[in-house]
């Protein structure tokens, strides 16, 4: 059992620096998810914790031990790879037992642990097969099983579900959540799927270009994103942004002022509104309006794609709205605490 401390960690490949001083505290037993766009350094950070990538600067501690110079297998971490990385020439049983054999675990102890892990993951029938003879989902379980038997302090997952189809992804996601519940150990999980991030995480770390943009509980990130990047990255469909006008009465994006207090922002104000927080209303109450361009039916709700007068677009998410025609003008308001204000220049929350 151990938490994790990352202090000023940097990473360079030759001349190019890809991590620019990351600080992070992860508590014992926490489920932490790294999200961010492709190439932002999620895998790199994870692999530095695993010991597969050298740490160019700063310090990583697991528990109260600095592990910069410790071999991967001695760090008390286990990793689940995106490509599973099972040993193709070994049976499922031996895939799981391999690590334990390396540290000369007694045979019956190995057997006990492998069978227990197989039971948790429902792969008991496949123990004698080789990975070749398994489906993608089963292989993924074996990969998780291989991590479990080593009883690590920290589990590392690098996009473990990205090679699975949608149904299996949902199911395996749930199983990983259960596993975390059951084992209660620290888990660090990399994904660029923000649904996975929101549902699994105790704490989400949003990364961009080798820097931490924001750290917080999923609902904190959803409710109070600290900057435009986090605001646009968390939530689906993505948040709408509107260039706003300011005067002493408040902030306008056309129509009525949604925020009726004076705001200080050197670089101008950008208003953020999530599609699900737009409420249809009368023209007199509205502070944003647009002509209906397209409706996406999703069964329980629909997404309205609208175009404003200045031809910028936004999206509203609603339950069924009767009698809409293409080109019709629709009017929206929103609760004041659902309105996000950002400085357009610094991109920080106001």
């Amino acid at each position: 059992m151990a938490g994790l401390t990352i202090r000023g960690v940097t990473k360079s490949y030759g001349e190019t620096q890809v991590m620019h001083g990351v600080d992070l505290d992860i508590e014992d037993g926490e489920f932490v998810v790294y999200v961010g766009p492709s190439g932002c350094g999620k895998s790199t950070l994870l692999r530095m914790i695993a010991g597969l990538e050298e740490i160019s600067g700063g310090e990583i501690s697991i528990g109260d031990r600095v592990v910069n110079e410790v071999a991967p297998s001695k760090r008390g971490v286990a990793m689940v790879f995106q490509t599973y990385a099972l040993y193709p020439h070994m049976s499922v049983y031996n895939n799981m037992a391999f690590g334990l054999k390396q540290i000369k675990t007694p045979k019956d102890e190995i057997d006990r642990r492998v069978r227990e892990a197989a039971k948790i993951l429902h792969i008991e029938e496949y123990l004698e097969r080789t990975p070749r003879a398994l489906s993608g989902g089963q292989r993924q379980r074996v990969a998780i099983g291989r991590a479990i038997v080593r009883e690590p302090d920290v589990f590392l997952f690098d996009e473990p579900l990205s090679n699975l189809d949608a149904a299996l992804r949902g199911q395996t996601r749930l199983e990983i959540a259960r596993l975390h519940e059951r084992l209660g150990v620290t888990m660090i999980y990399v994904t660029h799927d923000q649904v996975e991030a929101m549902t699994l995480a105790d704490k989400i770390v949003v990364l961009r270009d080798g820097r931490v943009e924001q750290v917080g509980r999923p609902m904190d990130l959803y409710n109070t994103p600290q900057n435009l990047f986090v605001a646009s990255f968390i939530g689906s469909p993505a948040m709408n942004f509107f260039k706003a006008e300011m005067n002493k009465d408040g902030v306008f994006i056309g129509g009525k002022a949604p925020v009726t207090k004076a705001v200080e922002a050197a670089g101008g104000v950008t208003v953020g509104l999530r599609p699900e927080h737009l409420i249809p209303c009368e023209e007199s109450e509205a502070f944003v309006s647009g002509k209906l361009e397209l409706v996406e039916q999703l069964g329980d709700h629909e997404l309205l794609h609208l175009v404003r007068e200045d031809s910028s677009e936004f999206v509203a998410k609603m339950e069924f709205l009767a009698d809409k025609k293409r080109g019709e003008a629709l009017y929206f308001k929103a609760a004041e605490d659902r309105i996000h204000l950002f400085d357009s220049k610094s991109e920080q929350r106001l």
């Binding site: 695993a50 010991g51 297998s73 001695k74 099972l86 391999f98 080593r150």
Partner: peptide, 8 residues
């Protein structure tokens, strides 16, 4: 790399 994690 999986081998490295497994301590070979």
């Amino acid at each position: 790399e999986a081998g490295k994690m497994d301590g070979v």
